[in-house]
């Protein structure tokens, strides 16, 4: 099987648009300061959780955005699809 996604470029643009809409929706308002609970252990753990959550969210958001960009690029120039999108996928897929 070759590396080609056999699909209408217009459909690719639609998919890219949907993916592009997903990423921003993962953003939530900045986390609250929990130090007022006056338990240093709890504060550190909750902050660590929030921080890791944000790192994961940014990572997923970046992957989705890169994927959407790759799909858009493909939709705009279908002839370059194989090289462009497959390279983008190869970069982000293992994560």
């Amino acid at each position: 099987m070759d590396n080609t996604i056999r699909v209408d470029p217009a459909e690719l643009a639609g998919v890219a648009n949907e993916l592009g809409n997903v990423a921003p929706r993962l953003t939530v308002s900045s986390p609250p300061d929990v130090s007022a609970c006056q338990s240093s252990g709890v504060t550190r753990v909750l902050n660590a959780f929030t921080q890791e959550l944000e790192t994961n969210r940014q990572d997923i958001q970046e992957v989705l955005q890169v994927t959407a960009d790759g799909v858009i690029k493909t939709a705009n120039d279908f002839s370059e699809f194989d090289a462009e999108l497959t390279a983008e996928f190869a970069r982000v897929m293992p994560r």
Binding site: M1, D2, N3, T4, I5, R6, V7, T67, F81, D82, L85, T86, F89, M93
Partner: peptide, 9 residues
């Protein structure tokens, strides 16, 4: 969709 790229996607 068909192809290796589709599978990866």
């Amino acid at each position: 969709w068909e192809g290796k790229g589709a599978t990866e996607f």
